[in-house]
Write a protein that binds this DNA or RNA. Structure first.
Length: 720
DNA sequence: AGCACGCCGACT
DNA sequence: GTCGGCGTGCTC
C-alpha cells in the first residue's frame, strides 16, 4: 500500500522552475473539459478505469457531492469500490510548495466507483492513499445511507459515520470464521399462539418477504420467537437482522439465538463492546461469515449479506432514535431497508406505536396478533385506582397508597415478588382541564397550551399564539391544572409499610436484570424492570399522572407502553397475577391497559392524528435558530406548496448547568423554533427542500455553528 | 471551515 | 510599480 510518497503527488523534492511554469499553464488550460484525467505531474495512472469517484468524509460542507480523483498505477489493485481512501481536499486551486502540489490536508473518504473518465473539467488530483483494501462500503449500504440521508435532510457523510464503524487494522488482519451452511427450518414453537404465526415463519423459510406488525403476548417468549424468525430466514439461505432497544434485550435475544441456532451463526453488535471487537464482528458480517445479527440501534446499518428479514423490537422505546445527525429512527431505517432489499419485515412489541398501526392501516404490513382468548390466558388482571377512589380514601391519600393498591401488594407478597413502577424525575408539566383532565390544546393548530396556572398567560407550544379565553371543549370548565406529580419517596414508604419484606430497587444507575421468585418488593423506574423468575405475583403502577402529563404527543402511548412493559412481567390472571394502576379509569390509555388492547389504542390515536394533522399521518420538521437567521432560512427555502408553518416559538434558553439535551440551542443563546407541516406523501419533498436550503446557506458561509446557525430536524420527537 | 484569488489604497 | 487589505468563492 503506497502513500503519497512515490505516488503522483510526491517524489521530487524541489522541482525546477520550468515545472512550476508547466503547472501554472495547466491551471489556465483547465477550463476546457477533458475526457481523460490528467494529474499535476503526469505520473503513471491505472490503465483501466483511471478515475476514482470519492465520497469525501467531511460532514455537511460539501453536501453529498462526489469528487473525482486520479488512480495512480500503484494503487490500481487496491483502489476498488467501497474501500477507505485518503485524499487531499480543500485549499482553493492548490498551492505549490517546494515543487509539490498540496491541495489542502489529507482527509478520509470512501471510494464509491471506478470510471473510465471524469466529467470534471480540470486536472484531477491523485488518490493519496488506499487506507485498506477491505471494501467496507457496499453498493447496498451506500444506497441505504443515501436513502436515510434524503429521508432526514442530512448529508451522506453523516449517515456513513453512523453506518461504518471506525477502522481497526488489527481487526481487519484477523480472518473471519468460515461460513456455516444454512440450518434446517425451525419448528413454529410458541409462534403457534398467533393466528398467522406459523405461516409467517414458513414464508420466511421458503424465501418469501412477509411484512408484519407483531403484537407480542406478554411474557418472556418474545426473544425466542424472534430467534425462530431469524432461524427460518437463515434456512432460506438468506441473512437476518434484529434491532432491540438496549443491552439487556440484546442479551436475551443473543441467548435465544444461541439456543435455537447453536454457536457461531450470529453476531452481536453493541456499542459497549470495544471498538476493535465491534469492528471485528461487523467485518464478519460484511464478509458473509456470519449471516444473522442482533444489536442495538447502530446495528440497523449492519451489512448483512443477502438480507431476508429485518426485525425491530419495541419501536416505541426512544433509544431507537439515533442522537447523532441526522437523527434517524431505527424503525424508519429498517423500513427503508426492507423496501430497498425487498426483504421481510417484523415490527414486534408488547405494545403498539401509532406508526406501527399506520403500517397495518396502510396495508404495507399485516397484523400478527393472538386471539383474545390467548391474550386473556396470559395477561394479568388489571385494576385501576382513580382520583375518585383516592378522594374517598383519605387515609390512603395521606400515605400515597390507596387501599386497593395496598391490598394487592400485600396479597401479592404472599405468593412472590411484587413490582412497583415509579416514574423518573424531570417531566415537563403541561396544562389540562382541572375538571376533566382533557389536555388544553390550541384552537388554531391543536398544539399543546403551556403556561402558568392562570388561564390568562397561556401560549401555544407550536404556533406561539396566545390563548386569552380558554375553556375546555369537553366539559366547559375553565380552570386549568399543571399535570406534574412527584414520586420518589414511594420506595421508602413501601419499605416501612412492609418491614418484613426485602426491598430492591432498579433504576438508572443500578439496573437489575433478574430477581428471584421469592417475595420481595422490587421498585423500578420504567424500562429498568427486572424479569422475575416465574413472573411477578403483582405489580403496582404509580403516579400515572406524571406519565400522562408530559407535554408530548406520545404521552398516552408512552404511558401505556411502559405500563404494559411492566405488566407483561406479571403472572397470568389464572395464576393470580394482578396489576394495579393508579390513574383515572376513564382515560383512554388506562382503559386500553385494563382491556389489554394496545393495538386498539394505537388505531384510535392514529385516527385522531389524521384528523388533527399530526405526525405520523402528516410529516413535520422542526427548524430552529436565532430569530433573524431562522426567518432568513425559511424565506430562502423553497418549501412545498402545501407546507404549513407553525410558530415561531421561543426555545427555552439552555443554561450552563444541567444536562445539555440534543437539539437544544447553544448555551445562553436565545433561539426560536418553527414547525413545518406537510400532508401525507409530501415528506420527501419537505426533506429535499430543507436540505437544499441548508446547502445553499452553507455555501454562502452560513456556517454550522455560531451566529447564523440553523438546525433542521425531521420527525422532531418533542412536538407537544 | 480553510485558503487562494482578486481588485483597490499607501509604501520602498 | 508592488505590497497587502479582506471580500468572494471553491474544494476533484
Amino acid at each position: 500500500m503506497s502513500s503519497e510518497n512515490g505516488s503522483v503527488d510526491g517524489g521530487a523534492e524541489g522541482a525546477q522552475p520550468e515545472q512550476l511554469a508547466l503547472i501554472r499553464e495547466s491551471v489556465r488550460n483547465a477550463k476546457v473539459p477533458r475526457a481523460k484525467p490528467r494529474t499535476w505531474r503526469g505520473a503513471a495512472l491505472a490503465k483501466e478505469l483511471p478515475v476514482a469517484r470519492v465520497l469525501v468524509d467531511k460532514g455537511v460542507l460539501h453536501l453529498d457531492r462526489y469528487f473525482d480523483y486520479a488512480v495512480p498505477e500503484e494503487l490500481d489493485a487496491d483502489a476498488q469500490p467501497g474501500v477507505r481512501v485518503r485524499v487531499r481536499f480543500g485549499a482553493g486551486r492548490g498551492r505549490v510548495r517546494e515543487g509539490r502540489r498540496e491541495g489542502g490536508g489529507l482527509i478520509d473518504g470512501f471510494l464509491v466507483e471506478r470510471l473510465a473518465e471524469s466529467d470534471y473539467s480540470g486536472p484531477l488530483a491523485a488518490l493519496a492513499q488506499v487506507v485498506s483494501s477491505e471494501p467496507v462500503l457496499s453498493e447496498e449500504l451506500l444506497g441505504l445511507a443515501r436513502a436515510v440521508a434524503d429521508r432526514y435532510a442530512g448529508s451522506l457523510a453523516d449517515v456513513l459515520q453512523l453506518a461504518v464503524p471506525p477502522r481497526s487494522a488489527r481487526a481487519e488482519q484477523r480472518p473471519s470464521p468460515e461460513p456455516l451452511p444454512p440450518p434446517a427450518a425451525p419448528e413454529a414453537g410458541s409462534w403457534g399462539r398467533y393466528e398467522r404465526g406459523g405461516a409467517f415463519l414458513e414464508s420466511l423459510a421458503s424465501g418469501g418477504a412477509p411484512r408484519a406488525v407483531w403484537n407480542a403476548l406478554p411474557g418472556p417468549e418474545w426473544s425466542e420467537e424472534l430467534a425462530r424468525a431469524v432461524a427460518a430466514t437463515l434456512a432460506s439461505g438468506r441473512g437476518a437482522l434484529v434491532v432491540v432497544p438496549d443491552g439487556r434485550a440484546v442479551a436475551r435475544v443473543d441467548a435465544a439465538l444461541t439456543s435455537v441456532l447453536g454457536e457461531g451463526r450470529h453476531a452481536v453488535l453493541t456499542a459497549d463492546a470495544g471498538p476493535e471487537k465491534r469492528y471485528r464482528e461487523w467485518l464478519a458480517v460484511r464478509r458473509g461469515a456470519v449471516r444473522a445479527v442482533v444489536g442495538t440501534r447502530a446495528a440497523m446499518f449492519a451489512p448483512v449479506r443477502d438480507l431476508g428479514l429485518v426485525a425491530l423490537w419495541d419501536d416505541g422505546d426512544d433509544s431507537h432514535s439515533e442522537p447523532h445527525a441526522p437523527q434517524p429512527h431505527a424503525r424508519e431505517v429498517l423500513l427503508l431497508r426492507a423496501a430497498q432489499d425487498k426483504c421481510g419485515f417484523l415490527l414486534g412489541s408488547w405494545s403498539c406505536t401509532v406508526e406501527a398501526a399506520q403500517l397495518v392501516e396502510s396495508g404495507w404490513a399485516r397484523p400478527l396478533v393472538a386471539s383474545r382468548e390467548q391474550v386473556r390466558a396470559v395477561a394479568p388482571l388489571v385494576r385501576t385506582v382513580g382520583d375518585q377512589d383516592l378522594a374517598r380514601d383519605e387515609a390512603a391519600r395521606a400515605a400515597r397508597l390507596p387501599t386497593l393498591a395496598w391490598q394487592a401488594v400485600r396479597e401479592g407478597l404472599r405468593h412472590g415478588p411484587v413490582l412497583v413502577q415509579v416514574p423518573r424525575r424531570g417531566y415537563v408539566p403541561r396544562m389540562a382541564c382541572a375538571n376533566c383532565r382533557e389536555p388544553a390544546r390550541c384552537r388554531h393548530c391543536a398544539g399543546p397550551l403551556e403556561g402558568q396556572e392562570s388561564a390568562a398567560a397561556l401560549r401555544c407550544g407550536w404556533c406561539g399564539r396566545e390563548e386569552g379565553s380558554w375553556h375546555c371543549p369537553e366539559c366547559g370548565g375553565f380552570r386549568l391544572r399543571a399535570q406534574v406529580v412527584g414520586a420518589r419517596r414511594t420506595a421508602e414508604e413501601l419499605g416501612r409499610a412492609f418491614p418484613a419484606v426485602p426491598v430492591r430497587t432498579s433504576g438508572r444507575e443500578h439496573v437489575l436484570d433478574t430477581v428471584p421468585g421469592a417475595p420481595a418488593l422490587v421498585v423500578s423506574t420504567p424500562g429498568a424492570e427486572p424479569v422475575a423468575e416465574g413472573g411477578y405475583a403483582a405489580a403496582l403502577l404509580l403516579d400515572g399522572w406524571a406519565m400522562l402529563g408530559r407535554p408530548d404527543l406520545r404521552a398516552g402511548e408512552d404511558a401505556l407502553r411502559r405500563w404494559i412493559a411492566a405488566a407483561a412481567l406479571v403472572r397470568a390472571q389464572e395464576a393470580g397475577g394482578t396489576v394495579v394502576v393508579v390513574a383515572e379509569p376513564t382515560l383512554r390509555p388506562v382503559q386500553a391497559l385494563v382491556r389489554w388492547d394496545p393495538v386498539g389504542h394505537a388505531v384510535r390515536e392514529l385516527g385522531e392524528r389524521a384528523e388533527l394533522g399530526f405526525p405520523p399521518v402528516s410529516r413535520m420538521a422542526a427548524v430552529s435558530g436565532a430569530g433573524e437567521a431562522l426567518a432568513e432560512f425559511l424565506a430562502a427555502a423553497e418549501l412545498p406548496e402545501e407546507a404549513e408553518l407553525l410558530g415561531p416559538v421561543p426555545l427555552p434558553v439552555t443554561g450552563a448547568a444541567g444536562p445539555r439535551r440534543v437539539g437544544a440551542p447553544p448555551v445562553g443563546e436565545r433561539w426560536e423554533r418553527v414547525l413545518v407541516r406537510v400532508p401525507p406523501g409530501r415528506g420527501a419533498a419537505l426533506a429535499a427542500a430543507l436540505k437544499a436550503a441548508q446547502a445553499s446557506r452553507m455555501a454562502r458561509g452560513g456556517g454550522s455553528a455560531g451566529e447564523g446557525a440553523v438546525w433542521v430536524r425531521i420527525d422532531p420527537p418533542d412536538i407537544g
